[in-house]
Simulated assay, not measured.
Amino acid sequence: MLEMVIDTRCHDLGGFEVGRVLPFRSRRMVGPFIFFDRMGPVDMPPGIPRATDVRPHPHIGLSTVTYLFDGEMTHRDSLGVEQVITPGALNWMTAGAGISHSERFDGLREGGGFMDGIQAWVALPEAHEEDAPAFDHYAAGSLPRFSEDGVDGRLIAGSAFGLSSPARTHSPLFYLHAELADGARLALPDGHAERAAYVAKGEVEVDGRRYRQGQMLVFASGGRPLLRAVGPARLMLLGGEPLGPRWIWWNFVSSRQERIEQAKADWSAGRIRLPPLDHDEFIPLPGAPAAEPTPMS
């Protein structure tokens, strides 16, 4: 049963606009997914200014999950990792007790190009919120694929449809990219308490009603909702087990509000290391007095 529909809202990162889906005022999380941004689709012109890049910034208490359909980005973090992100590959950065990273359009800067992808955040269970930070890269060819009746899919993380991704996660979840031919049908995987489908391209039909690109469909637990493509469509399916309430402020997520206050102080004081391969600039802590932590559940 369809529980709600979340429309994308435009959000400016300070030079690059994204389409924000989660968190939403009446639906903060889907399983452990606490954040979901669409990067594009956008045709970036030659000579992309560096102001478009996302400069070094910090995270705690979460994993960033970056997945591209088109284009290229370069990730650099405080562990010393430098990784070019390309379509179909998975980049999973676990912030744990604290990490900083940047995301730059180095590969597109001179000649420009088409850019499209998703960055999600997955909250960490309380037992892993203070884990040592880590970064894992999974090439597109290492992620399980399936193809049947007009549906071509890639399991990015977790378990679904009898498949298991090699991606190292910290709680039960699934995250899946599917391309549907016109008229193809895809049921949401069962066995997960919370589930959603994001329409990345085209339109789908559920129970006789159509939903368009940029909408996230959140389903009640139980059953196997069926989505039918109206023309070629691209879907991202996601969900898993809920982790309980979380606080979120800027790039920090925690089960404890005081931990976010500590992270704010740590970034302001320079106690979270900058990426050694990208340390000449950074995003300062937002100073708006109205920006107070918000509980997420």
Rank of each mutant, 00 (worst) to 15 (best):
M1H: 12
M1D: 13
V5K: 04
T8S: 12
H11G: 00
L13S: 02
F16I: 14
F16P: 05
S26A: 08
M29F: 14
I34S: 14
F36D: 03
D37I: 11
I48R: 01
A51K: 14
G61D: 10
E72H: 12
T74G: 00
H75C: 06
E82F: 00
G88C: 12
W92F: 10
T94N: 08
G96P: 00
S100T: 13
E103S: 04
D116E: 10
A123I: 09
H128D: 12
D136V: 01
H137R: 14
G141F: 00
S142E: 15
F146D: 10
G150K: 02
G153D: 11
L155I: 05
A167H: 04
R168H: 10
S171Y: 01
F174N: 03
H177D: 15
L188Q: 08
P189M: 08
E194G: 01
V199Q: 05
A200L: 12
K201Q: 14
E203L: 00
R210V: 12
V218H: 09
A220H: 12
R228M: 09
P232S: 13
E241F: 00
P245S: 07
F252Q: 08
V253L: 05
S254H: 03
E261W: 13
Q262M: 08
Q262R: 15
R271I: 09
R273K: 07
E281K: 10
F282D: 06
L285E: 11
P286Q: 02
P286M: 07
